[in-house]
Design a protein around this nucleic acid. Structure first.
Lengths: 239, 239
DNA sequence: TGTGAATTGTAACGAAATGCAACAAGGCGC
DNA sequence: GCGCCTTGTTGCATTTCGTTACAATTCACA
């Protein structure tokens, strides 16, 4: 296991700084806090931070500007906090390179979960065994190359996949012979819940099937489980 | 065959603990319950649990942390219960190694189904080696391939089965020469009870028989036990 | 053995779930 | 701003499966 993750919290609200410091430290992390971008800039070279929790609404220089500066320094993961729950803000933040986003007021526990998720994704935290194995994955003649994020057909020719199609296939391939409900797929792919009449997953599967040359009327690879979801019906092996 | 699975339920809601205890015990499982992580930790060494049902939202130490601890102890399967809003937690949970999850409020029957699925996937309990690779199953010349979710006739040609037909056949093949009542089949296939005039199973068997070229008037493979149910009359061997 | 009640087999029907083409909204590069 | 690409939505065709109806079979019992 990695030593302690070291977190930098940047927020002008003293109460939040203290709360987060206590809470995250109790969870086994080291925490430093800054009240604004200026102070954060001063702290930055003094420690090796694994992740920055950044309030967007800061006095003086905005959190977005500071995030931009951070990005220029290093690719440290950033989790943004903001009072505005507008989707656009989220987009702006994510485009800027934030790794996740949380609207205020937030549940510390949820922030913790996201911090951990981001750290794990960043490959920090002990290089857990859950890291994306960059090895090629073979199933039913096909090859999925996570390293290159591409799919090769049995003849070894690349079949172009869109981002969404790749993600879906990856999720399926990681759980072969297991029925994945639409809910789960929605969760794993988009972090959101499926509405009652949501057909997005069906359509995504349909599109993926076509690229895999799998006939939806009589599928071989991605089987439908009526009332259940979908299963990858194949044995997968990691090269 | 299998000893009683022993389940540990960790949830702070007394009503849920009681409900699950009663329900799962009625399904032939042994159940222990804990109200929080602390109590669960105390119970852990006292029993050999085959599976843990874990609420993510616990007072004191979070379910996520407890799951992490559990993982460090043992690779016991975990099924998580989550509130709808904890989307991130669900993701983190799965990444952490939970084997499945269910959003609250949940249907006990559905939980039961998932528990069974996870136990089955965990490959016979008792801490045997992991996941016996789903081998092909042969009976009376026919071959059922769980890995590909398909059926081959004695000539080796695939006979397309619908999802329901496949499930039914799988259930039968896993219990050869054993009479399965309609109730049992209904339970195993749909997690629900058969109504008094429920003919769904009969019709399903009829449809499956046709694909297996088994004459309903004089069946060879799937025999009818009047007043009882159905039996797969064949010796099965796993390749 | 004959008779009626139960039970089972299965064709037919229809509600619900799924496949997917067509459309639309938004992102991205120019 | 203007297309191209990606992806969600909608509508409709198709498939699946439960229900119903009725015929065939079995059983109890005279």
């Amino acid at each position: 296991m990695e030593p302690q993750p070291h977190i930098l919290v940047v927020d002008d609200d003293r109460e939040i700084r203290d709360l987060l410091s206590r809470f995250l430290e109790r969870q086994g992390m080291r925490v430093s806090a800054a009240r604004d971008a200026k102070e954060a800039r001063r702290l930055w070279p003094l420690g090796r931070y694994h992740l920055v929790v950044l309030d967007l609404m800061l006095p003086g220089e905005s959190g977005l500007d500071f995030a931009r500066w951070l990005r220029a320094q290093d690719d440290v993961p950033i989790v943004m906090l903001t009072a505005m729950s507008e989707e656009t803000d989220r987009i702006v933040g994510l485009e800027l390179g934030a790794d996740d986003y949380l609207a205020k007021p937030f549940n510390p526990r949820e922030l913790l979960a996201r911090i951990r998720a981001v750290l794990r994704r960043a490959g920090g935290e002990g290089g857990g065994p859950k890291e994306p194995p960059a090895r090629a994955i073979r199933f039913a003649g096909w090859t999925l190359e996570p390293a290159r994020r591409r799919l090769l057909n049995p003849e070894g020719v690349e079949v172009p996949l869109t981002g969404g199609e790749y993600e879906l296939l990856q999720v399926l391939v990681e759980r072969p012979n297991r029925v994945l409900t639409r809910d789960m797929l929605m969760d794993l792919l988009h972090n959101r819940q499926a509405g009652p009449f949501d057909r997005a997953i069906d359509v995504a599967v349909s599109r993926l099937r076509r690229k895999l040359e799998d006939d939806g009327r009589n599928p071989t690879l991605i089987k439908t489980v009526r009332g259940g979801g979908y299963v990858l019906a194949a044995t997968v092996e990691r090269a």
